[in-house]
């Protein structure tokens, strides 16, 4: 069909828990995009993920109000906080250490994020995750 893209919308939506409350309702509703059809499709696509994990989602919408969505993996910071059992990173990264995670956990996170990372192999992906952990004041043991 003759899709003409009108715009894109990037939202962070909790896996399996999309509903018409903000940000989904207002963001989609202002554009006339069918909110319930989006929620239904998003929740179905994320049903195998950890409920509530924040998923960056790119929605493209077309002239006839149809849409497509690309769901990315949750941010590295989400996985790192979870692995370190922390609610947030350090207030002063570099000056204080908020917690620690293991190299094995770094590898697990790298594997989970691999599809969305700009890395050629798992070692490269681990370096990216390592950098994210350091910037949050979380050391690797």
């Amino acid at each position: 069909m003759a899709k003409k893209l009108v715009g894109t919308l990037k939202l962070q939506v909790p896996a399996g828990q999309a509903n018409p409350s903000p940000p989904v309702g207002p963001a989609l509703g202002q554009r006339g995009i069918n909110i319930m059809e989006f929620c239904k499709a998003f929740n179905a696509k994320t049903s195998d993920m950890e409920p509530g994990a924040p998923c960056p989602t790119v929605i493209e919408y077309f002239q006839d109000k149809s849409f497509s969505m690309t769901i990315k993996t949750p941010p590295a910071s989400f996985y790192i906080r979870k692995a370190a059992k922390l609610k947030s990173g350090a207030n002063k990264p570099g000056l204080e250490v908020a917690g620690s995670i293991s190299t094995a956990q770094i590898r697990e996170i790298a594997e989970a994020k691999m599809q969305d990372l700009n890395a050629n192999n798992i070692e490269g992906a681990m370096q990216i995750i390592l950098g994210s952990a350091r910037s949050m004041g979380i050391e690797v043991k």
Binding site: M1, A41, F62, D64, K65, F67, M69
Partner: peptide, 15 residues
């Protein structure tokens, strides 16, 4: 037809 993840809801001059 629900306006969802495929083009062709009728709300377009081509359809």
């Amino acid at each position: 037809i629900e306006a969802a993840m495929a083009f062709g809801t009728g709300h377009h001059g081509t359809t």
